[in-house]
Computed example of a mutant assay.
Amino acid sequence: MLVESMDVAVDGPHGAVLAPTSAQFESGSVTIVDGPPGTGHTAFSLAVAGRLIPSSGRVLVDGEQDAGRLRREVAVVDVPDVSEPDEAVSLATAIGEELAMARMPAGRSHVRDWLTDHGAEQWRRTRVEDVPPDVRIRLLTLLAARRPGVRALVLCCPDRYGASPEAALSVARLLAADGFAVCLQLMTNTLRAVDVPRATLGRTR
């Protein structure tokens, strides 16, 4: 699976939300997209997942424009104000919702068992906002990958709540090794000390 953002731009009521951006991510690999904090990251996440129609440019999946396929096969993970969990609920509640979205058993015992299996049972009753950031992004990404039909994942700026680039890259690479196409968005400042290839919001090829 190959997802391509080709000069994709998104306009808002008061100007550009996302300047023309080109990037691509494909099965079995991780693509990093960096950019400054702000709504551009959210707009890019939603555009490449078929959930937002760009003002200009195109998003292709395997060479074709097919927003329906993108919506079915691309999961957006922890996108601000879109798919992020409620910060005030317990981790158990958030995981229960994610298990249900993955069409897996989601009762209390199932949540507890799943968290135990993934080394996170100790945070079961912890509010989402207080869960260690590296744990949060790992758990949410692993469950998003279990949703039926998902073949690609877009992780939107887990560094905004403190996740380290190393932890985010680790889970992204783990899923890429399982054949998923993974787009990891991080803020520019986060990547200053990390030497990895990346695309950049507001740049075209």
Rank of each mutant, 00 (worst) to 15 (best):
Y161W: 11
A176N: 09
A145M: 06
A145V: 05
A145F: 02
S170G: 12
S164P: 12
L153K: 13
V182T: 15
P133C: 05
L175H: 12
Y161N: 11
R138N: 03
V131C: 06
A181F: 03
P133F: 01
I137W: 02
R173H: 13
R138F: 01
G162R: 05
P133Y: 01
E129T: 06
R127K: 13
Q185N: 14
R138K: 08
R136K: 14
A163W: 01
A181H: 10
A172M: 10
T126K: 01
A144V: 00
G179E: 09
V128M: 08
V128P: 01
R147K: 15
L174A: 13
S164M: 06
P158T: 07
Q185K: 15
G149V: 04
S170L: 13
L142M: 13
T126H: 01
D178T: 05
Q185D: 13
P165M: 05
R147A: 02
C156V: 15
L139D: 02
G149D: 13
D134A: 03
R151H: 12
L169D: 10
G179I: 04
S170T: 15
R173K: 12
P148I: 04
C157M: 07
P132K: 07
Q185R: 14
D159W: 06
C183N: 09
L153T: 13
L184M: 08
G149M: 03
A144D: 10
A177L: 10
P148W: 05
L140I: 08
L174K: 10
L143N: 02
G179A: 07
G149K: 07
A168K: 12
A152S: 15
G162Y: 00
R138A: 08
R136P: 00
P133K: 03
G162P: 02
P133I: 02
R160I: 12
L139M: 04
E129K: 10
C183I: 01
R173N: 14
